[in-house]
Design a protein around this nucleic acid. Sequence first.
DNA 1: CGCTGCCTTGATCTTCTTCAAAACGTGTGG
DNA 2: CCACACGTTTTGAAGAAGATCAAGGCAGCG
Lengths: 252, 252
Amino acid sequence: MTKRRKKSPVEPEYMEPAMCSTDLRREILQRVPFFAMLPPNAIEQINLRFRERGFTEGEPIFYAGAPAARLYVVATGKVKLMRHTQAGQDVLLDILTAGEFFGSLSLLGNEVYPDSAIAQTIVCALSVGAEAFRAILVDYPAVALAVLDITAARLREAHEAIRQISAHSVEQRIAYTLLKLAEKLGEPREEGLLIQMPLSREDLANMAGSTTESASRIVSQFQREGLIVTGRQWIAITDQGRLRELASAGAD
Amino acid sequence: MTKRRKKSPVEPEYMEPAMCSTDLRREILQRVPFFAMLPPNAIEQINLRFRERGFTEGEPIFYAGAPAARLYVVATGKVKLMRHTQAGQDVLLDILTAGEFFGSLSLLGNEVYPDSAIAQTIVCALSVGAEAFRAILVDYPAVALAVLDITAARLREAHEAIRQISAHSVEQRIAYTLLKLAEKLGEPREEGLLIQMPLSREDLANMAGSTTESASRIVSQFQREGLIVTGRQWIAITDQGRLRELASAGAD
DNA sequence: CGCTGCCTTGATCTTCTTCAAAACGTGTGG
DNA sequence: CCACACGTTTTGAAGAAGATCAAGGCAGCG
């Protein structure tokens, strides 16, 4: 058996919170899926409406329950979307990366954010007031349609997650969660398909709707079975095929 | 203790499948939340693009996995949105009533429906091809924004459901599910706030991510505790307050 | 009536959480 | 460079929650 790698292969995102420089903004906006189809001068117009802000690792971007006034776009880094329960239990709903948006979409008056957004790494985020964003959607109908597509896709994913959670075992859910993460953040490395972000057992458990201990047990088991390689705050997948089998069926 | 009512107080929806008459269509479209703001002549235009179809109780409208070509609007009746697992387990994702839409929103080529839609009662549904709907959204930007709002709201609900399922007990989830159903379909009656639709224990279990037996046990328990009144295929809530406490906290 | 679905109930058994404690890695300060 | 301290991860054992299996009961309907 090869020796387990001790050092995390996850590369930190190099950047200062303040380095969200204005020069890069247009380029970043250009890469946002729902702005990509716009001509440069439109991007220019839109750029004017956004403001930028840096966040350090672990810093909250906004808390659930705060008045929902702005829409954010991740420029660099990873953002956790979390929802809390009375009992202090957290559920990790999604992890967002460069080009993805979060925050207030609807303009319908005085609403509050239903979830908290927390910088998982150093993050630079662009944001725009909800009304201003609404104005953009009105000015550029193609953007509105693109945003709708993305939101509909997220709804499908959420429905899929509901099915997963309510019909599968913890083992299957963890497997599924790892695959989903790898799909989004996976980078091929010697050790396997690395999930390129700091990810604790607790985060994983909160995504799969389970506990830290259970997540740990199952991750260890996966490693013993040769499906993954893992260390502190990182996981790489070595056998996607078998993991996928596990996630969907379980009955074989 | 009052004698339990034996007869279902749920009123069947009176209507023939074929009675989806063309005369009513404009009126129905008018009531659809995202068309409501349009002037009559626009509704007229949109009406031309829709076709109607009736479904009997239990009849599938479309199956998960079929090519997703159309968007549907419920004119009358109730529609179940379900997702299946390999193991034959079903998850009930949502129940849709008059004015709500389902089916294919995205136009992005050759996709398939991720869930099955099944008529829970006799249903009349209007439908439109995905491209035609997209054309409507382009022609009427206000409609696009309204559709986006509704989709975003559904996403929020789905996230809330994920939190519910992953962090609460079956008892709490059933309580929560009943409250949500009552919110949507509740009608005040002598016996309490009646959930106006045929609802089996199995349906309830599939919504709460549990089993028929557990749902039955908990429903019985709720009835013993005086929170609800129930019979075959129907449930009415008598003590919303206590049910709500149960659903959210549980720790008291 | 007797059939066909729903619904209920009990007993068992698996799964997962919980509580508790130890081991490990990582970064820090001496 | 080493040793320490902290947060993360692992592991064990006990317990609870819920699924599963298996009958039996009840209502509505032909």
